[in-house]
Design a protein around this nucleic acid. Structure first.
Lengths: 221, 221
DNA sequence: CTATTATTCAAGCAATTAATTGAATAGTAT
DNA sequence: ATACTATTCAATTAATTGCTTGAATAATAG
């Protein structure tokens, strides 16, 4: 074959390794989770409703296309996204949200009929958060809160929310957030809170979006 | 199934439409070419060494994932990238170049033994270009030159290079460029020029990269 | 050493995809 | 109308991929 043609075929073949890695919905979900912080295989399997073997296979694919890195820590293998990968994932997500109308529809259908999920005036909400006029709940697992959270937020993992209810103010408005627009933890939190008589709304943005907007993020504690 | 799980599956399934679109080497090549300017199916088929039917099918896939748009112009159908798609493609290319070592190897193997292709001091070359100490040749097809080219460059499509040789200065250094690092037009141009006794080198960057570096780009003429 | 746990490997099946071929459609020119 | 050209459609084949299952490996604890 023509060497020029061969060169191009070889080059685009290499590029397509990245594309193949992100052509599977489950691998995208894995990447999304990994962008919140490193995880073990088992943890990822639980989050994605995959078998452990299947999760491991998907992670091998991601590793072979250099999108994730792994590190053995004792009995566990911890995976984390490679540099630049999260930015790439977000640009892909953004293009999907902007150009694929079905995504908005799926979101609306899912949130339909749920209280506190109506699209709020985002900028107004963010202003109130900044002025500390509301209580902000980070309902993700505690490791994720530690890895980075919205400044001023309180860590109340969804699982513990019911037990912690007593400590929350009934009069003050509550804003719950989790990993971003496709994470349902905050949806469940807001549902529960409203059922119990609190005034709660959901913030769609996750920590990444928050940071990307230039707003303050804290970590640790 | 659990409605939360269903929601996630549906969402990531939509995201994966973008990934599936860019998981094929040929579709990536098509996108790369389209980012240089709109094209007809036939033209794309010729550039990619695909059959017309096959090209059309790939373009349908890209259209269904909303990465390209089409417009019927008389007998022809003209395709062009959708908004944000080229930025996305470039970020994908960048991640591939940075993380997949094979790409550099393939490039080196291809350029090995060719004169004028040795990696030059890029910044020094760009300075000389800006100071107009060298002649810059844009060896892409004329439509692409018209759609946008490096300021000060002269359009000499590769096909016409041999005929235009007489008009080129033998003493002054010549810099040839085309679509970017994976376009071989400039490689062929530099090879020909050096064989004929000119002093020619290749600029790896394409117009997009040039613009991205904040350097002046012109169009028309 | 043995048992336990986390992860990976290997084989097999069902579903999806890329490329090929030949036919169909839609504009244009005569 | 008829001929011609660019593009798309439809059917087929070969190759690839995702998931499941059960076994293998590796680190740790008793």
């Amino acid at each position: 074959m023509n060497p020029n043609r061969r060169f191009k075929d070889e080059i685009y073949d290499q590029f397509s390794r990245i594309g193949k890695a992100v052509s599977s919905p489950k691998r995208l979900e894995l990447l999304d989770i990994l962008c919140q912080g490193e995880r073990t295989v088992e943890n990822l399997a639980r989050e994605t409703s995959l078998t452990v073997a299947n999760t491991s296979q998907h992670l091998q694919v991601l590793k072979n296309s250099r999108l994730v890195e792994q590190e053995k820590k004792g009995l566990y293998v911890v995976y984390r996204p490679a540099p630049m990968v999260c930015e790439f994932f977000f640009s892909m997500r953004k293009i999907a949200e902007n150009r694929i109308a079905e995504i908005e529809q799926i979101k609306n259908r899912f949130l339909e009929g749920k209280k506190g999920m109506e699209p709020v005036d985002r900028d107004a909400l963010i202003k109130r958060i900044q002025k500390e006029e509301v209580t902000i709940l980070d309902v993700r697992p505690p490791e994720e809160f530690r890895a980075g959270h919205i400044s001023g937020a309180v860590s109340v993992p969804l699982q513990e929310l019911e037990l912690m209810l007593a400590k929350l103010p009934k009069t003050r408005e509550i804003v719950a957030y989790c990993r971003g627009p496709y994470c349902v933890l905050s949806v469940q939190a807001v549902e529960l809170l409203n059922k119990k008589g609190y005034h709660a709304v959901r913030l769609e943005e996750g920590v990444q979006d928050w940071r990307a907007m230039g707003l303050p993020v804290a970590s640790g504690e």
